[in-house]
């Protein structure tokens, strides 16, 4: 979907990070979902390594 296609669509937003950005969008009636974002696997290196090893095997 190109940039010009985007201009013709209704904006539907996924917000990752600061909640206030999502609140502002909702206050304007924009379709938006806020992601309760956390670093993958808590950002802990050991977990991330495990996760990538497991995912490689799949």
């Amino acid at each position: 979907m190109s940039v010009n296609d985007l201009f013709k669509q209704e904006l539907k937003v996924v917000n990752l990070g600061l909640k206030s950005f999502h609140t502002d969008l909702k206050s304007q009636g924009v379709t938006a979902v806020h992601v309760n974002w956390k670093p993958k696997a808590g950002g802990k290196k050991k977990m991330l390594d495990l996760l990538s090893k497991i995912n490689k095997v799949k």
Binding site: W37, K38, K40, A41, G42, G43
Partner: peptide, 24 residues
């Protein structure tokens, strides 16, 4: 609130960690 069916969870000897980072 943290998980949906199909989400991955890592099982380790001393802990269980949601792959999406929601909780451990």
């Amino acid at each position: 609130q943290y998980l949906r069916p199909g989400d991955e969870v890592i099982l380790d000897m001393d802990r269980i960690v949601a792959a999406n980072g929601a909780f451990s």
